[in-house]
């Protein structure tokens, strides 16, 4: 392998990781925008999304993949809605710490529930491993191609929904001022519900893509969620484009860094960038929304 493909492949790896982070970060930032709290349990939506697909394609259901994916996504969205209904709805008026801790509790609950059902062992969807397509010395597998294409589709979808639809308008209004939005006749609960559904769908899609590309385990959500936190912070609070940019930046930076520093510090890269951004441009994250 000579130099150019070596670096290009690294960039590609970075983009792939970045797409996954961005999908997670967008879901996270959506809920943050509307409800004003960091949903710690988002990682569990990711993980359960992947496991729902696992459930659907294995016995006794054994659905084919094209049928199983929509089923898994619908169930993930239902789980998200159920989370809101059971936990966050009673807490609409609560302060942030309360919400945050409830989310941590929920995350514990859901993660261990998955471990109870499937064990701590790693599972796999069991599709045959294939060598990637080779283009100009770069390798890309169908799953990875799917990650990039589907991420782009999701981003466009979220954009259209958020900025071009009535629902998106309501969401943005809600994010700006809950009480004012209510007075102006926006169905707040319905809007919040749709935010949960979209956020869960993003989580489910991300989780399934991640698991298709790698494996499933009960901690797959949490480990990636921390990066998604950093991505939202780097990109700016509650800002969809920021989440996207933050995800890609982290993905690229940590993969490129692996070539030059001890890979033991791979995970630190995201946080170091985060701290640098805080030092240089603190106003990015002081809480204004700049949609």
């Amino acid at each position: 392998m000579d130099s150019l493909p070596y670096y290009l492949q690294t960039v590609l790896n970075g983009v792939l990781a970045g797409c996954i982070y961005a999908l997670f970060a967008m879901g996270l930032t959506l809920i943050y925008g509307v409800l004003n709290f960091v949903n710690f349990a988002h990682g569990e939506l990711i993980m359960w999304g992947a496991y729902f697909l696992f459930l659907a394609i294995s016995e006794p259901f054994a659905l084919p993949l094209y049928a199983a994916i929509p089923v898994a996504l619908v169930i993930t969205a239902l789980l998200g809605a159920a989370m809101d209904f059971a936990v966050f709805r009673p807490l609409r008026q609560a302060n942030r710490l309360t919400l945050l801790i409830a989310a941590i509790g929920l995350s514990f609950f859901l993660r261990n529930a998955a471990q109870l059902f499937w064990g701590a062992e790693v599972q796999t969807y069991g599709f045959e491993i294939r060598q990637g397509y080779q283009w100009f010395g770069l390798y890309l597998t169908p799953q990875q191609l799917a990650i990039i294409v589907i991420s782009v589709i999701c981003i466009i979808g979220v954009y259209l929904l958020f900025f071009k639809s009535r629902m998106g308008k309501s969401m943005r209004a809600l994010a700006d001022n809950l009480d004012l939005a209510r007075i102006s006749g926006i169905h707040t609960e319905r809007t919040i519900l749709s935010a949960w559904v979209i956020s869960s769908l993003l989580a489910g899609v991300g989780g399934i893509l991640l698991a298709l590309d790698t494996n499933l385990n009960p901690e797959m959500g949490v480990t990636n969620l921390i990066k998604a936190f950093a991505a939202t912070l780097i990109g700016g609070v509650g800002n969809i484009w920021g989440a996207l940019a933050g995800g890609i930046i982290i993905g690229l930076a940590e993969n490129i860094a692996v070539l030059f520093i001890s890979p033991g510090y791979k995970d630190a890269v995201a946080f170091v960038i985060m701290v640098l951004i805080l030092l240089v441009r603190p106003y990015v994250v002081i809480g204004e929304r700049r949609d």
């Binding site: 070596y6 690294t10 792939l16 385990n217 901690e219 480990t223 070539l259 001890s262 033991g264 791979k266």
Partner: peptide
């Protein structure tokens, strides 16, 4: 010498570096 973290899902770049 390439240390890598436990429980990650993506080791592509570490592998790439090892295979250089």
């Amino acid at each position: 010498i390439i240390p890598f973290d436990e429980k990650k899902t993506d080791y592509r770049t570490e592998l790439l570096r090892a295979n250089r």
